[in-house]
Design a protein around this nucleic acid. Structure first.
Length: 286
DNA sequence: GACGTACCCTGCGGGC
DNA sequence: TGCCCGCAGGGTACGT
């Protein structure tokens, strides 16, 4: 499941292998992969043709490729299983190949969007004056962004009448944190996922943000060295950071701090993993 | 406006 | 062996 570090690895790969190339043509093989492009797959392909790709950017789990000389960008979200691959154009098609982009050069490679569960997709959007695709203007900065405002985040947290994990997954408050890194950061901070956001003190918020950044940077340092090759590749199943997870997916296994068996609780159609001893529930929660 | 939840989708694994 | 069901989960639409 690609989260911020994985998306950043993809962005770096695109910067190396795709930026400054001109699109010869694009092929949409599954309509759902361009469902956020309202005008449809044919329009997407038509508008991409002949465009030169600029420097890729990222905010949270979204990344985008600006099209030079236009005020538009190709916006990408990998969803749960999306991959952006740079493949030799004679490589066999992947089973779940959804979009193919060929280039007008002799490098012999093409960009492929492969996505098993089709939660991800590509689309074309106007770029706002600050360089952001217009449809993601509501996405907050992510905690690795130098302009992320810790104090403003704390104030917003205090204003909310919700619980901490919901807040961490709210991309309009803080972006790039998914279910896995939320559980990891909360475990490190010894915080229960249902702690009300209104109870957070400034030092608590600062500490939690520190743990979020540590978890993300650790994943980035591992993933960031694994793709120094032809392939711009994030594979949700490759699990290159699985070994370093302390909470997520560890139901029944001993807590790495206190050896108490870790628990899993159904939560918002997904799961929360936590240590019942290190991460005590708030009085109002069970 | 703020908050909570159902739904989209496909493949895998467990139970029967 | 094969079928069915639950699970995985980000973002969004919709209900309260």
């Amino acid at each position: 499941m690609p989260e911020l570090p994985e998306v950043e690895v993809v962005r770096r790969g695109l910067a190396r292998w795709v930026a400054r190339r001109t699109v010869a043509d694009a092929e949409v093989l599954h309509p759902r992969a361009v469902r956020r492009h309202i005008a449809g797959g044919d329009d997407f392909a038509h508008r991409l043709k002949g465009q030169r790709i600029g420097e890729p950017s990222r905010r949270g789990k979204y990344l985008w490729l600006p099209l030079e000389t236009t005020h538009t960008s190709v916006l990408a979200h990998l969803g749960m299983s999306g991959q952006l691959l740079v493949q030799p154009h004679d490589a066999p098609d992947e089973k779940h190949l959804r979009i193919r982009v060929r280039f007008d050069d002799d490098l012999g490679t093409e960009l492929r969007f492969v996505d098993q569960r089709t939660f991800g997709g590509l689309s074309l959007h106007h770029t706002t004056p600050d360089g952001l695709p217009d449809v993601i203007a509501h996405i907050a900065r992510d905690p690795l962004d130098p302009l992320f405002d810790d104090d403003a985040f704390h104030d917003a947290l205090r204003r909310r009448r919700t619980t901490i994990k919901r807040a961490l997954l709210d991309q309009s408050l803080i972006s790039g944190v998914g279910n896995i890194y939320a559980d990891e950061a909360l475990w490190r901070a010894r915080l229960h996922y249902e702690r009300p956001t209104g109870t957070f003190t400034r030092p608590r918020t600062t500490e939690l943000l520190g743990h979020i950044r540590d978890v993300m940077n650790a994943a980035l340092s591992v993933g960031g060295t694994s793709f120094d090759s032809l392939y711009v590749n994030v594979n949700g199943e490759s699990g290159y950071f699985d070994r370093s997870l302390d909470a997520y997916g560890r139901e029944g296994l001993p807590c790495r701090r206190c050896a108490t068996p870790m628990r899993r609780r159904p939560w918002m159609n997904r799961s929360s993993y936590f240590c019942p001893r290190c991460q005590r529930p708030p009085r109002s929660a069970s």
